[in-house]
Design a protein around this nucleic acid. Structure first.
Lengths: 370, 370
DNA sequence: CCGCACCGCTGAACCGGTTTTGCCCTCCCG
DNA sequence: CGGGAGGGCAAAACCGGTTCAGCGGTGCGG
């Protein structure tokens, strides 16, 4: 009934704890018959090492941590984190390392959690998500000497290793897709400006749009459904409304798509919609969302590998996973034909759509290659 | 730089570890001046107890656990869990107890996790969610003697205490709302039949619908968006389609609502939709979803309190939180007027809607009170 | 035949807390 | 003024692992 200890095993095997320890950890110091006898007894007793004793002895906690400080109500709809946790766990469960997970109210609370976990030796390291432009957590983690793997681009993350994928490239993929469909005025609904990945995507769009002959208007949101819808309405009621909108999340995309339809616009005939992040939400709406997709779970697994190595004392290099790919569904289509650019766009999209919408200026450029 | 231990404090204070322990834990055995001196030094050094040492010494892990075995892709869209975790944490953070969280592939893996956590003394107890009809986890947890708080109705949960709310009452609230609007044929899209709460809700509906003069057709799903939409289509293409559908989750409700609209039906003029669970998803669609809502975070906090008490050795009684209430939004309205029951329904709803839909048999009953 | 290396194991220290025991000193009371 | 009570602290044991020094016995080489 009571959980057996190594002393119990030692007694039954007629050896000392030391011999048992050697045997159970597969290290030399005991003969093969003795080892087998000890292992058999341990197995029979259902022995498992007391994690506290082991942690105390070898000075490692045997656990990693993840703190998220977005509001719970929004988090609940963020498929990213569950997939990430799932991927992390799949990797960590290989050696039975558990994950401490918590949601913090704000960044101060998050930092307090790190300090506390580290001081109490609750964890051997943490995953850092939602990196910000001037991120106060980075210097704290560096000062603590706490093994950390950043999940996000290695920009402004000091010496902390990062697992990331190229958001700029992904943005390019989406923009080129829209350009090929003849879109020249696009809108973008991004997340909070203080997030690093928002800045990276914005910079990429600002650089690429002109190259593709597009102009792009951006509206920032807090990633909530409300603001996503509002942003869509803002963009679509401009004097020169965009013919396509790129959203930085799938929740805002779904919300924005719904808002557009409520305005009487048809998707994709009147306006195309692209989401960033490919969850079940995308298939929830009609038409289903064209979206940038990546294997978040695998990404989490890679990050977990890195953190395990870092906690083991290794110097870990940044790891770049492949950039998100565009999954084509029904929410993107040829740009509505305007008086000026209609022919070109229709031809490029391989199947023109009738029905003009919002004339506006419209730059005339040849359709970008791919 | 290195984390200070009690021995460090003892040395600087010129006392022994024992005195330091008494002082820091606020128990008698040291004089007041000495206590203050020790506390000051501890504070200056930024001392925090090594959790492993404390766990080893007093035999408790100082952590609780939560395992979920739904597929990650679906979990990501289940706002329930994030809110639950958030609420649990808010309560647990009062004494700095962390939460071990993981997603398991299936129930076997979940049980293995419990056994492992318990054998290794990783946790002092766990929260049990998604209770099933014949739940293999219950006997295991009882046999292990692992403190557990069930989050769900105390049915088939053995001696494990439960934190729950009355789903039968909530189902009644929803049905009465629909009855008052004149609906006589309703559909229900529920979750997996092996879940206890599905059965409870189904039983409640089966009992209440006749009392309210309604007939109810039920379709089961796995809670995915796909199956939610398919279920809606199945119900709405019957020869006698329902005039209102009650969904067991908000994700399937949103998905079903969208599917209905894609079939050309108007919501709520042609068909009313009620969701179960009130997340941001409800406001994502047009019209926004009428839904059963409860304070999940508070519920999680209560469960955490119970688990803390149970792990402390107390016998804990079941706790019933208040039942979900119906948040009225735009997705429910008067039943479409049929040849037979039209007048009654229209009058009851206080504002009849024109446009008949699917005649069908339609029971004629006076409108239920409330 | 002696010395040395190595094997297989024991005994003990150690990690950093908590808890028990016991000593010394003061204070109070008869 | 002697004795008992009790406060304040030291010393040590304990939780359950890991690790290191050491010890007897065997085999091998010189």
């Amino acid at each position: 009934m009571k959980r057996p200890t190594m002393a119990d095993i030692a007694r039954r095997a007629g050896v000392t704890k030391a011999a048992v320890s050697f045997a159970l950890n597969g290290r030399p110091g005991v003969s093969d018959p003795t080892r087998r006898r000890i292992l058999a007894i341990a197995d029979e007793l259902g022995w498992q090492p007391n994690s506290a004793a082991r942690a105390l002895s070898d000075g490692r906690a045997g656990a990693f941590g993840l703190v998220v400080d977005r509001p719970a109500r929004m988090l609940g709809l963020e498929p990213f984190f569950m997939q990430l946790i799932s991927g992390i766990q799949a990797e960590l469960s290989a050696d039975g390392t558990p994950l401490l997970f918590t949601v913090a109210e704000d960044q101060r609370a998050e930092i307090a959690t790190y300090r506390s976990w580290w001081a109490q030796r609750r964890v051997d390291g943490v995953f850092l998500v939602d990196v910000q432009l001037e991120d106060a957590r980075v210097p704290v983690l560096e000062e603590l000497g706490m093994p950390t793997v950043v999940i996000g681009a290695p920009v402004g993350t000091g010496r902390l290793p990062a697992a990331w994928s190229d958001d700029a490239a992904a943005a390019g993929t989406a923009l080129r897709h829209l350009a090929a469909l003849g879109h020249r005025r696009v809108g973008r609904v991004c997340g909070p400006a203080h997030l690093r990945h928002t800045e990276i995507r914005s910079a990429a769009v600002a650089r690429l749009a002109p190259e593709l002959g597009m102009e792009c208007a951006t509206v920032a949101t807090d990633y909530s459904a409300d603001e996503g819808a509002a942003a869509a309405r803002t963009l679509l009621t401009r004097p020169d409304p965009p013919t396509a909108i790129l959203f930085d999340s799938d929740l805002t995309a779904v919300s924005g798509l719904t808002a557009a339809q409520a305005m009487g616009l048809r998707v994709p005939e009147d306006v195309s919609v692209v989401g960033w992040g490919d969850s079940a939400l995308c298939e929830l709406v009609h038409p289903p969302l064209t979206a940038l997709s990546r294997d978040v779970a695998a990404h989490g697994g890679h990050a977990a590998r890195m953190l395990r190595a870092a906690a083991g004392g290794a110097r870990v290099a940044d790891l770049e996973d492949e950039a998100a790919r565009l999954v084509l569904r029904g929410s993107t289509g040829p740009a509505p034909v305007t008086a000026a650019a209609g022919a070109a766009a229709g031809a490029a999209a391989g199947g023109g759509t009738q029905g003009a919408n919002a004339p506006g200026p419209g730059q005339r450029q040849t359709v970008a290659e791919l």
